[in-house]
């Protein structure tokens, strides 16, 4: 490497004043310490704790139990496999329904039609609401006895309680929020697309649909990647709404809620909860690896 480096770069490095060097060192060391301390240390501690039994009170009571937590999780812990399934359903659903719909809305609203500001606000409004509030709002719709939905439909469906239905009820409520989020991100991306590209396509006689798929969409690659990452992250950390509804039981088991059940509140299964968190971390890192590979391979291209 050093032989191919341009000659001029060496003297330039040397010319860094001690003061500048100090600044550079500080700028590297502080984030590094923060990352090690806030990301790697807790992550490694979780991995360690996942092989132990600990009630979280006294360091001395940590007891090494080997793989027992993992064995228990996969054999005698009934919520685990449903949770994995629900997280995957969550990911697939979030990707195919609200994400694509949000992109569709963004493309439509980008047309500067009449009242597009109003629609933007209307679709984006749920994103501003806290998930606690969203949980409450949807309880008003979904309540079996007093809810709007059953009143209007004249049914007695237990939207939040029936384990065959409640996941879809929650996914719908999530989609309501997620659509607006994706729409806004995509809309911002669309505004950034060079107008001359569209004009050139129009001059060449390409249809709207063809222009979007062959020109606009490929140009939006960075935004598309961000959207994919957001969808994956959102579906893995899906938690708030489920936690508000019933703390992730009874048809709404998801991994993040199970981790919390075991370590938040009075339950103190730190080892067991850590093992669940490690499983979640492994699943996430698969997606993170895929994403990083995509990003780096893009950067390498000229």
């Amino acid at each position: 490497m050093s032989t191919t480096t341009p000659v001029s770069s060496r003297p330039r490095e040397r010319r860094l004043a001690p003061r500048d060097r100090l600044v550079v060192a500080t700028m590297i060391i502080i984030p590094l310490v923060l990352v090690l301390w806030l990301v790697w240390l807790p992550a490694l501690a979780s991995v360690y704790l996942s092989f132990t039994r600990w009630n979280g009170f006294q360091i001395g009571t940590i007891e090494w139990v080997g793989l027992q937590n993992y064995r228990d999780i996969t054999t005698i812990y009934p919520p685990f496999w449903p949770a994995i399934r629900h997280n995957l359903i969550w990911l697939v659903f979030l990707f195919f329904i609200p994400t694509l719909f949000g992109m569709f809305l963004a493309v439509i609203l980008d047309r500067e039609m009449r009242g597009s500001r109003f629609y933007q606000t209307a679709f984006y409004l749920p994103v501003v609401l806290s998930l606690a509030l969203i949980g409450f709002i949807w309880q008003l719709f979904y309540s079996r006895d007093q809810g709007l939905l059953n009143q209007v439909l004249g049914t007695q469906i237990d939207w939040y309680g029936d384990p065959n239905i409640n996941l879809w009820s929650v996914l719908f409520a999530t989609a309501w929020r997620h659509t607006g989020y994706i729409m806004l991100i995509y809309l911002a991306g669309l505004k950034g697309v060079d107008v001359s590209l569209r004009e050139a396509a129009a001059v060449d006689g390409a249809s709207e649909v063809k222009t979007f798929f062959t020109i606009i969409f490929p140009v939006m690659r960075p935004i598309n990647l961000i959207v994919i990452v957001i969808v994956v992250i959102e579906s893995l950390r899906a938690f708030d709404l489920v936690w508000i509804i019933n703390k992730g039981r009874n048809g709404l088991e998801i991994i993040a809620a199970l981790v919390s059940q075991n370590v938040i509140g009075e339950a103190t299964r730190y080892g067991f909860g850590s093992a669940l968190a490690v499983i979640m971390m492994i699943i996430s890192s698969v997606f993170i690896t895929l994403y990083l590979r995509a990003v780096f391979s893009e950067e390498r291209q000229p």
Partner: peptide, 15 residues
């Protein structure tokens, strides 16, 4: 009451 799992105790009290 049927379908208790989606019902809050306040709703049951109302019933």
């Amino acid at each position: 009451q049927e379908d208790p799992l989606g019902r809050t105790w306040q709703e049951a009290a109302t019933a």
